[in-house]
Each structure stands twice: as C-alpha cells, then as structure tokens.
Design a protein around this nucleic acid. Structure first.
Lengths: 190, 190
DNA sequence: GCGCCAGTGTACCGATCGGTACACTGGCGA
DNA sequence: TCGCCAGTGTACCGATCGGTACACTGGCGC
C-alpha cells in the first residue's frame, strides 16, 4: 500500500497556494486539506500552531524567495542587470499574471493586523532595494524612492487588475510599460 | 423606549464598510451585525438573499457611486476638468488612503468568481471612461487606453501599498505623481 | 382609532469552523 | 532485527458559521 509521505518543505508551497487563492479567511482547514492532499493531522504535525502558524510560515517563505531572487541582487548587483532580472523574476513568480500576490492579499483585510510587520517589511524592503539600485544609477534619493514605490505599487495593481478583468496577459503588458517608464534596459521578450 | 429603526438605504453603506474591511469571507453575519448595529433579523429583512445578496447590492451601490461621480463626467465632460475632478473624488472616496477598494478586495480571492461581471465591469468601464477623456485630449486610442489602465491599476496598487505599510499619506503622494505623469492639470492641493 | 406591515429581538437549526486525542504505519538508524 | 518517531487516518470537541421561524413593536394610512 504505497502511501504518500510529505515533509514540511514540500508542504509550504501547497499551503501558500491555498492562502493565495482563497485568502486567510477563505482558506479553511478543510479546503487546505483538499488542495494540499494532506489530512488535518499531517498539517497540524507540520504546523502545531494551526492556521496562524501556517500563514506566518508561508509569509516568511515568500519573503525569503523575494529576498534571495530579487532584493539581494537589487542591493548589491549591477543596477541595470539587477532591475532587468527583477522584471524577469517578477513575471516568472507571478506566472505572467496567473497568480496573485499573497502578501498583497493579506494586506487588504484584517489579516494585515495579524502579520503587520511581515507584510509591511516585505514591501518596504522591496522599495528600498529597488531605490538603492536606482540611486546607484545616478538618480537622487528622493526620485529613486518615489520611482521604486511607483513600480512596486504598479506591480500589485497590475496583478489585481489582471485578475479582476480575467485577463492575465494585461499583467505582462503593464510590466512592459513600467519597465519602459523606468527608463532602464529590459528584455523585450521579458 | 426609543428604538432605532433603519431603512435599506441607510444600511447599505454600513454593510459595505464591513465587507470592505473584512473581505467577503471575513465578514460573517455576526461581525456584520456588530458593525452595523442591526440584528440578523433586520439584515435578512433587507436582504432576503443573505450574505450573497448583501455583497451584490453593496457592489452595485459602489459601482453606481463611481458611475455618477466619476465615469459619466469622464465620458461627457470637458476632459481636463473631468480628470481633475476624478483625482479629487478618488481622494475623497478612498478617504486619502484610509479606505481600501471593495471591488479590488473582492477581486483577489475566489469571491471574484461569484461577482465576476460586476467586478470586471467596474474596472473596464473606469478604464474606458478615462481613456475616452484622454482621446478627446488628442491622444491616440492605444496610448489613451494604456495610460488609463496604468492610472486605474496605479490607484489600486497605491491603496494596497498604503494599507500594507500603514501609511495612508503615501496614497495621496502616489496620486499626485500619477496626476503629474498623466500630464493633465490637477489641483496642487488635490 | 384601528389595522397593516416595515422593522426588530430571541431562539433555534444543521453544517462547518479551528483544533485535539489517539492509534496506527512504515522507513531509517542502531 | 528491532525500536523509534515522523507522518498519517479517524473520530471527536465546543464554537461559530449562514440561515430560518415566529412573535412582537410602533408609526403611518385609512
């Protein structure tokens, strides 16, 4: 009787998808169970703290992904290349508009208050990292941080709008326009 | 014994606030009850269809507000004035970043699927109305609709970001930058 | 002055919520 | 080979979910 056995690292992305698509309140234990294929006992084995711990871990995992794939490069890499890489990674991570931002989703309702520092930290660090790359490109600190904020806010808005219109393709188009507006090189095929 | 008696029109904005702040799933009947001050019986009296009808009515009410205060003017008014009015009304409606967009909140999770046409219609009509004003300003149809999409998406993103950062003031700042980017006159004091 | 009915409060329904208890299975290290 | 323990399934808990039933109140139209 071949039984499927998971370990924690396998489970996190599955739980993340459930929260991302359903929201914190919409993701009931039974729905998480359905989507992940794990029973409640397995879920509570990995996350003794229950739903709240699941969400916290998932949030930290998302943050870690962005930190490693985008923020670090933005802070330390060659700015033009780092920004071009950001466009690529953002498009990839959000599956060209097929996926919404978990952090953004949590930010909108009262869930924000449970995870306030994680949520604001994610956005603040993204903006600061991007601004630092822009500063290294010669822009003033003020201009850089305004532009960085506009980009991050634009990505979130583009995700929401493409989902609202059921038009994932509009996400990529918006990404292209933002890249052009920023005035840094980017891959035409993104 | 002075008892408070509501009528339907009074109740809609109260229910709207509950959904806006809690999301569809987060807004349980008991929480709607607390926030509105109405008992369940009164709520079901006004909305026999329950939660789903409440959300549908509230969505239609928001749509109607934007249609009357923003979209109509955008479609038919003098373009510069109409766009300037849009900035003002948007800032007012969203209480300078103190309030999130109900339609956007519903768009992110599975709630979108319940109210798909209402949600996409709201954004599509906003974008088209704004684009029409820009066309009347002499911009090409393509340029106008791209710029309109960027503005609407930017407003949504700015709302989300200001809430995530707990920094309502950043919403106004983002609004100002968008207005400047659009290149149409707007009130400096918004 | 009286009847109607919009609006309300209270009590209740079965279903689902998040969470716990506990017995079990099977692969891996000693 | 055997014991341990990470991982699992099943059954259950009280609380809360969305929704219903029904009696009541009081202002407005006649």
């Amino acid at each position: 009787m071949a039984r499927v056995v998971f370990e924690r690292a396998d489970v996190i992305p599955l739980v993340a998808d459930a929260f991302r698509e359903l929201g914190y309140d919409g993701a009931s234990m039974s729905r998480i169970t359905e989507r992940t294929g794990l029973g409640k006992s397995s879920l509570y084995h990995f996350f003794p703290g229950g739903k709240e711990e699941m969400a916290a871990v998932v949030l930290a995992d998302v943050d870690d992904w962005f930190e490693r794939h985008i923020f670090v490069t933005l802070r330390e890499g060659e700015p033009h290349g780092a920004i071009a890489a950001m466009w690529r990674e953002v498009d990839r991570y959000f599956q060209s508009g097929g996926r919404v931002c978990l952090v953004g989703a949590f930010a909108l309702d009262q869930t924000r208050d449970r995870f306030a520092t994680a949520i604001s930290g994610y956005f603040v660090r993204w903006i600061e990292a991007l601004a630092s790359a822009l500063v290294r490109l010669g822009r003033s600190a003020e201009e850089a941080s305004e532009q960085a904020e506009d980009i991050v806010l634009g990505i979130q808005g583009a995700l929401m709008l493409s989902r609202a219109k059921r038009d994932p393709a509009s996400f990529r188009a918006a990404l292209h326009r933002m890249a052009r507006r920023l005035g840094t090189p980017h891959h035409a095929d993104l």
